[in-house]
Design a protein around this nucleic acid. Structure first.
Lengths: 329, 329
DNA sequence: CAACGATGTGTAATCGATTACACATCTTCT
DNA sequence: AGAAGATGTGTAATCGATTACACATCGTTG
């Protein structure tokens, strides 16, 4: 590999001058400039980032800690983050916790040792250990999707969105509304969305029937199973609508209903959250909430950038959303 | 930031000993070992990767060059790659060319300057400049999805898969088969799949009607428009089946057909390639080809790893696929 | 014309790790 | 007992960049 020393020698200048040329700071004569330029293009020389980072403490890399890589939400968010990082010439280092909370800490450390300039955390479980770890980290960290005490975060309006969706159902005169959620260990998706469901039911004086509530694990299949459980557990009294906390589970739920000969939305209405691409194309098309994930990615990227620059940024923000009314309700 | 020197001092040993402890090579007494361990856990010290890489020329990072980040195929592939890299403690640096061929070269250089230990290229256009660049690169490069001369690559069996699909259509007695493709500048998706279409048509003695062929840009909407063009260009003679080179475009195409009151597959059959998740859940469910993207990601990851270790690896491979027969044909 | 700022360049220290080499001590074997 | 090997540790060079500092030259200004 050619180094800055090689270039300097070939161009007949000192490496200081080459460095100045590369970083366009300090003075470099037209003459030297041309010779260096020439040599560099001939050799295809690229400065070593390791050496540079060692000296400057800047790597030009930010880390993203994802719960799961191959998910529609993740890829939209990453795409948004990438969009703003690209403008700043920053690269993205991806890590994937596979929903294992210990890994979040592990990756936080790893990103520290790699001297990431910043970290974006899409966490699912925020424990005390995690918080301690983040506090001790000499690197700016921001969080998307869940509120993490002490650091800037951008969250989705889970409570409001879920309430709105429930209101929509209630507005269509549904009284018996079922619920398909996920484990409460996930604060945003598992806990808040369920709370909104229960609150709206109670506020409306509607009965929250335990047998109309089921839990899935985000997968389409689990939505199918959850719906099956709801329908079969109490044949005599089934809900007239079911609110699912994700589009994927809603899709599975609808599959089961269609299979069993129920008409959606006439017999049972189904609603989801997340606006997966497929939601528009399944039959009936799914009523859902768009969280603008890509824009949220851009926004959290900007927040990280601002935090890295030491700007006093608005610490806690909530991202916009919109209800998409389609045919399943 | 604490450095190895700080640790050494606090533990009362030389930094050499600390380094030996960290890398578990050379001898370190039980006593020293314990003191060092103690100090490290107290301080939360993590060795600087930049310094380490500068010395060892290994970064533990591989780069992936993607045409587009937020795509189902990409995220599946990345997930597969991640799976094998994780086992080796390797991290992934993501770059996204946004389908711009110049960026492929730019990112190749960038990954070189970041001293990536290896590169996985999911290219779309392989020009001569790109090839030259790769040859000159002192880093192992492998390609997925398109064949790149001179480097190990894993390709999808585009020709065979497309032929099989066409055979399926022909076997169902379709004589007038349309085609929705993409620009031929994309060798695999644009060129090879179309060639398979034309070859099968000709081999079967079927007429290739230009007005039954249209071109999209991978998007669902473009599939819709392409189908519209096919139907409206020649009302008197429309195809009885249409082969689409991607599931997304097939989905758009079906949307148009359903909107216009055509029955799928009775009036017009539709087939796609790629097995998007949604394909199973739209109505009618889409007949398509599964390319096992995640496994392909694992495979290309293994190939890169092997190449990095200098193993004499089987240079050109083709990944398996399977036809999924569903209701749209 | 003396002084000063702008321009252009080089010397050498530094960042935080790894590692070749040297040296000391302790075991073990013949 | 003496040699050979195993064990344990430290010294110092090195990786490839950046940058403070020093110095030289040149044009301009009062």
């Amino acid at each position: 590999m050619t180094t800055i020393n090689d270039i300097a020698q070939m161009a007949g200048v000192s490496r200081t001058t080459v460095s100045r040329f590369l970083n366009s700071n300090g003075y470099v004569s037209q003459e030297a400039r041309e010779r260096i330029e020439q040599i560099i293009s001939e050799t295809g020389y690229m400065p070593s980032q390791s050496a540079k980072s060692l000296r400057t403490k800047k790597t030009g890399v930010i880390g993203i800690i994802l719960p799961k890589i191959s998910t529609e939400t993740s890829s939209r968010v990453v795409s948004g983050i990438n969009k703003v990082m690209k403008k700043k010439g920053m690269q993205i280092l991806l890590t994937d916790t596979e929903l294992d909370p210990d890994k979040e800490i592990e990756y936080l450390r790893l990103l520290k040792s790699r001297q990431a300039d910043g970290i974006i955390l899409l966490a699912t479980n925020i424990g005390e250990r995690l918080q301690k770890e983040i506090e001790a980290l000499p690197i700016p960290v921001v969080a998307l999707g869940q509120e993490v005490p002490g650091i800037p975060s951008l969250t989705y309006a889970d409570y409001d969105a879920s309430s709105d969706m429930m209101q929509l159902l209630v507005g269509k005169d549904h009284k018996k509304i079922g619920f398909i959620g996920v484990s409460k260990t996930d604060p945003a998706v598992g806990s808040i969305r369920q709370k909104a469901y229960i609150d709206v039911m109670e506020r409306q004086g509607l009965e929250v029937n335990e047998s109309w509530m089921a839990e899935g694990d985000f997968s389409i299949e689990s939505g199918y199973e959850a719906m099956k459980q709801i329908i079969t557990s109490n044949r005599s009294e089934i809900p007239s609508a079911v609110f699912c906390v994700t589009d994927r589970m809603a899709t599975g739920a609808m599959e089961y209903l269609k299979e069993q000969g129920f008409r959606v939305p006439e017999d049972i209405a189904v609603a989801g959250i997340g606006d997966a691409v497929m939601s528009k194309y399944i039959t009936p098309s799914l009523t859902t909430v768009d969280y603008y994930n890509e824009e949220a990615g851009e926004a959290i990227g900007e927040m990280l950038l601002a935090t890295m620059e030491g700007k006093n940024y608005n610490k806690k923000m909530m991202h916009k959303y919109r209800l998409i009314k389609r045919d399943s309700v």
